[in-house]
């Protein structure tokens, strides 16, 4: 699913306007625990999270996420934006909560990229 479509579905606001949003996202993964993200996610997906600190971007980079959506309208810290722009990972904020947003995206056809077996 194209990231632009995801932004639309999530009623999202793109926080990194300099980054390309014309990218393909293969699946989604939601968590607030970074170790879970690292252990159970698959590459090339979208991260839904309620955390906004710079580590989220680092974690996303290590686990090879293509974009991050902050749920419940959260705004990231300045440092988070800086690293995201550096590493080329688009950040989006959505007014929906984690459950609501996961449901909307899943219903629209974005598969779950949560794996039971860790990396």
């Amino acid at each position: 699913m194209n990231l632009r479509k995801i932004i639309k579905l999530s009623d999202g606001f793109l926080l990194t306007p300099d980054l390309d949003t014309d990218i393909e996202i293969n699946g989604g993964y939601g968590a607030d625990l970074m170790s879970d993200v690292l252990a159970f996610s698959q590459p090339n997906s979208l991260l839904l999270t309620g955390l906004t600190n710079p580590q989220v971007v680092r974690t996303a980079q290590m686990a090879e996420f293509h974009a991050i959506i902050f749920v419940r309208g959260k705004q990231p810290q300045a440092e988070t934006l800086l690293i995201a722009n550096q590493e080329g990972i688009p950040l989006i904020t959505s007014p929906f909560g984690m459950f609501e947003l996961s449901g909307r995206l899943h219903k629209a056809g974005l598969p779950s990229f949560e794996s039971n077996e860790s990396n």
Binding site: L38, A39, P43, P54, Q55, R58, T59, Q61, M62, A63, E64, E87, N119
Partner: peptide, 27 residues
């Protein structure tokens, strides 16, 4: 936090490491 790991992962990819191996190392 994570800057060093980020550099390490990039270095491995530049050195020609398989992306899967670079990902495991990075995590």
């Amino acid at each position: 936090g994570g800057n060093a790991s980020s550099h390490i992962k990039r270095a491995l990819l530049r050195l020609g490491a398989d992306p899967q191996i670079a990902r495991r190392c990075g995590i």
